[in-house]
Design a protein around this nucleic acid. Structure first.
Length: 460
RNA sequence: UCCCCAGUAGCUCAGUCGGUAGAGCAAGUGGCUGUUAACCACUGGGUCCGCGGUUCGAGUCCGUGCUGGGGAGCCA
């Protein structure tokens, strides 16, 4: 008999004489002549209740089922005689697939996120983490659908890169050489004898590659793992995370902002419409104001604020800041928080940043002081998107590279794109985990990625 | 990397003025029951994070290390 998913059974419109489910015991209760087992198979948040009559031949064993044990249950799907659930299964057979030892760490009670991080291999079996990772999967799908519907192509940019300066933080070195004994013949460390014959690293961004494909296929995006070797110890940084990077030809900064805003809106809407049961859990147990916040984001325009005006607002603010605000310095977290959480109380798109604090590839504005950069800041999360219109003018780009002390030799391929049919184009990067944090209300990035990698932590 | 806070039973925590350790849940046993974080009774369970110091005596005070959390920087 074919196995049914619990998700499907709970949505049934009529009873069924014979069904088969396979899953894990969440909890078990005994009654006089029968036993209640609640089973979860991961297909949805809810468990299904199974009634096991004492007349079953292996009833003694069934009564010893512990939380976490795996079972296969066949029986009839019937309307429940009790309150609290519509459907339940009257079991005709309960096969014990495996018994969980009594040391199973997940109990029928609330655990702290800190504890669950120490058992990251088991935490997806809890209600909350099951919901997180179902939503994560659903949003991945929604991302592809969003872009596909608009004629974007999905590009797989390299994970291993030879660009030694992508301008976005410290990089992880990739080598096959043994640091203790770099070469078998006793020679000293010699990069030319390494696998690629030169320095190689894990990517910090697929942008430069994506630009090449935007200038061929028009509208493209990447969605893949990204690596930053920064020694960041905060609740919103991970050494390995997933990033979505659209890149659009014939698109200026304004179009870029439109796209970023529409993208975030679409994903929130998708989660609310397609993950309502899991979303309800977050609104109830993680952040009581979550639904109001998300609906507010959906119903209000994002603020679009030039950096220069942001500086004015912050300078005029009655609130005092630890760090001063002046044109030419990057805004501090406290400033961004003030804008999103206090002043506007909604997402803010900051744009036209000073040239001096932004990387070489961002397009220089006519004022020669600012570049066409934009960051989307979300309340409670901070920067969720960072992007720009790219510098498409060869001379300006080369001048910027010289200015920032870059070695152009390794970037001839990049510069070629400005030599042959260069066009205005734009793109941005969105941190996938930060999006999930915003949508679920979870405040620590380590709780929205299956096995988080942070400084000093690579267990599992 | 810097600043702040915490570490006590499997989990979540209490522990007063420095006087040799407590609760709820979990586990085990028994009872009751269409139950639903089931309920009731009993039982077992401790390197009080490690090391050093002060003291007659340290979970408690001091130093130091480790681990975890929050904030800052960096960013997505």
């Amino acid at each position: 008999m074919k196995r049914s998913k619990i998700h499907t059974l709970l949505q049934s419109t009529h009873p069924s004489d014979q069904v088969l489910i396979e899953g894990w015991v969440r909890t078990r209760r005994d009654s006089k002549d029968f036993s209640f087992i609640e089973i979860n198979d991961g297909s949805c948040l809810k468990n299904i209740q199974v009634i096991v009559q004492s007349s079953l031949p292996n009833y003694d064993d069934i009564q010893k089922l512990t939380t976490g044990s795996a079972v296969a249950v066949s029986g009839a799907l019937v309307t429940s005689q009790g309150k609290g659930q519509f459907w339940e299964i009257q079991a005709s057979d309960v096969a014990i697939i495996s018994l969980a030892s009594e040391s199973y760490p997940l109990q029928k009670k609330r655990h702290s996120d800190e504890f669950l991080r120490t058992i990251a291999h088991l935490r997806p079996r809890t209600n909350k983490y099951g919901a997180v990772f179902r939503i994560r999967s659903e949003l991945s799908y929604a991302i592809h659908r969003f872009f596909r519907d608009q004629g974007f192509y999905y590009i797989h940019t390299p994970i291993i890169t030879g660009s030694d300066c992508e301008g976005a933080g410290e990089m992880f070195r990739v080598t096959t050489l043994d640091p203790q004994h770099p070469l078998s013949n006793g020679h000293a460390f010699d990069i030319s004898r390494d696998f690629f014959g030169k320095e190689a690293s894990l990517t910090v961004s697929g942008q430069l590659s994506a630009e090449m494909f935007a200038l061929a296929l028009g509208d493209v995006y990447t969605f893949g793992p990204t690596f930053r070797a920064e020694n960041s110890n905060t609740r919103r940084h991970a050494a390995e995370f997933w990033m979505i990077e659209p890149e659009m030809a014939f698109c200026n900064l304004s179009g870029n902002m439109d796209m970023g805003e529409a993208f975030i809106r679409y994903l929130i809407d998708h989660a609310l419409c397609n993950c309502s049961e899991d979303m309800e859990l977050f609104g109830k147990f993680v952040d009581p104001s979550l639904m109001a916040t998300l609906n507010h984001i959906l119903s209000s325009e994002f603020v679009r604020l030039p950096y220069r005006e942001a500086v004015s607002i912050l300078s005029a603010a009655s609130q005092s800041f630890e760090y001063p605000v002046t044109f030419g310095t990057d805004l501090q977290s406290e400033h961004e928080k003030f804008l999103t959480d206090v002043y506007f109380k909604r997402p803010v798109i900051l744009y036209d940043y000073p040239k001096s604090i932004k990387p070489f590839y961002m397009r220089v504005n006519d004022d020669q002081q600012t570049v066409a950069a934009m960051d989307i800041l979300a309340p409670g999360i901070g920067e969720i998107i960072g992007g720009s219109q790219r510098e498409e003018r060869l001379e300006v780009l080369e001048a910027r590279m010289d200015e920032t002390g870059m070695n152009k030799a390794g970037y001839e391929w990049y510069l070629d794109s400005r030599r042959y049919g260069s066009v205005p184009h734009s793109g941005f990067g969105m941190g996938f985990e930060r999006l999930i944090m915003m949508i679920t209300g979870i405040t620590n990035i380590r709780d929205v990625i299956p096995f988080p990698r942070t400084p000093g932590n690579i267990e599992f």
